[in-house]
Write a protein that binds this DNA or RNA. Structure first.
Length: 344
DNA sequence: CGAATTTGACCAGCGC
DNA sequence: GCGCTGGTCAAATTCG
């Protein structure tokens, strides 16, 4: 049973998938009790082939520090067609700045990934859930899908294990071993992935789509199992994994993989309770989560900027390793190297 | 009774 | 090559 519960995490935030992103805050901002993180990742073969991409992120930081809103607005309204009413996958990305934004939006939109529930106080936790400790709070990064758990803290090592390759051409999603005559040395191709870190007492967050659980595995060094879900819609290849951070059980890591081939079920449409505020629902013919994610991210970005504005200048020296050290092991494992642009 | 979940088994990738 | 681990299958069980 998935779609009928009202599972909203207490907090969530997002994190872009670029490593030098300084506003990945690991400490709860004064007054704000921690928060979850919302992060995304995906395989980025292009990235592997173009190591110089790092530089591009720097400008993103600057960008955010200066005029995120304007930028987003401009991007949404003009070149990139990112308006909530008519989003189309960008055919090409021309600038660094747009890369990031497009990436974020592209991923969310292209993947039809539902938005994380808003940080409202609701049944699941309003004060019941454990507040995040400075250490466990939020910095997240994304991990390769299969990767979500412990130890690999060594950045350099992570770098070595780049996640691969071309996305499965055939969406026969669950075509695993059977249709997998992959050549040796060729890792299994994965669909773009996108993950959320939320603070919630429930594992399976309601996201508007219907999911069927098809597996559960114990996670190494963690008392909490990882659950595997598949979208119940016919032919929809989207899967998601849900696991809990063992150091902070109130944190749930949900990883989406693939793209929905259908619209969000009416369950979500019917109830606007996911939305931070009333928002126009996308027309039936449209991919819905794009604007959601966009708005949510904006909210979070702005919030972060507000909270941490004065910290930015001091964070220039932050690096992925440092960030990771502030994360609980299960999050530390998320390889920053997996961040990259999604051009698919 | 059909759909969803549970759970042990199986398989592939990866590191040593 | 071997063992470990993650991901998925599928039979059994539970649920609505």
């Amino acid at each position: 049973m998935s779609g009928d519960q009202d599972h909203r995490p207490e907090h969530y935030n997002f994190i872009f998938h670029d490593e030098p992103f300084p506003f990945i805050d690991h400490k709860p901002s004064s007054g704000a009790p921690g928060g979850g993180a919302y992060y995304e990742y995906h395989d980025a073969p292009q990235l592997a082939a173009a190591p110089s991409t790092t530089t591009s992120f720097l400008s993103i930081t600057d960008l955010l520090r200066s005029s995120m809103v304007d930028y987003m607005a401009a991007a949404a309204s003009s070149d990139f067609g990112l308006s909530s009413s008519s989003w189309e996958p960008p055919a090409a990305v021309g600038t660094v700045g747009s890369d990031l934004m497009l990436d974020v939006n592209t991923l969310s939109a292209a993947s039809n990934i539902p938005p994380p529930p808003p940080p409202t106080t609701l049944g699941c936790g309003g004060g019941a859930s454990t507040p995040l400790t400075p250490n466990s709070s939020t910095s997240s990064s994304s991990t390769e899908a299969g990767a979500g758990e412990e130890e690999h803290l060594k950045p350099d090592q992570e770098e070595v294990k780049q996640q691969p390759e071309e996305v499965d051409t055939d969406q026969g999603d669950m075509s695993k071993k059977l249709d997998k005559p992959k050549k040796k040395g060729e890792k299994r191709a994965r669909d773009p992935s996108f993950a959320f870190v939320t603070q919630s007492e429930v594992d399976h967050l309601e996201d508007g789509y219907r999911w069927r659980k098809y597996g559960q595995k114990a996670v190494k060094n963690s008392p909490y199992p990882r659950s595997y879900y598949r979208c119940t819609t016919q032919k929809c290849p989207v899967k998601k994994r849900v696991e809990r951070c063992y150091q902070n059980p109130s944190i749930v890591i949900t990883t989406y993989e693939g793209r929905h081939t259908h619209n969000c079920p009416t369950t979500l449409r019917g109830s606007g309770h996911f939305l931070p505020s009333p928002q126009p629902l996308p027309p039936p013919s449209q991919v819905m989560p794009a604007s959601f994610c966009h708005d949510l991210m904006m909210q979070q970005v702005l919030q972060r900027l507000d909270d941490d504005d004065d910290k930015f200048s001091q964070r220039g020296d932050l690096n992925p390793s440092a960030l990771l050290q502030n994360l609980p092991p299960s999050l530390q494992r998320l390889p920053f190297q997996d961040f990259g642009f999604f051009h698919g």
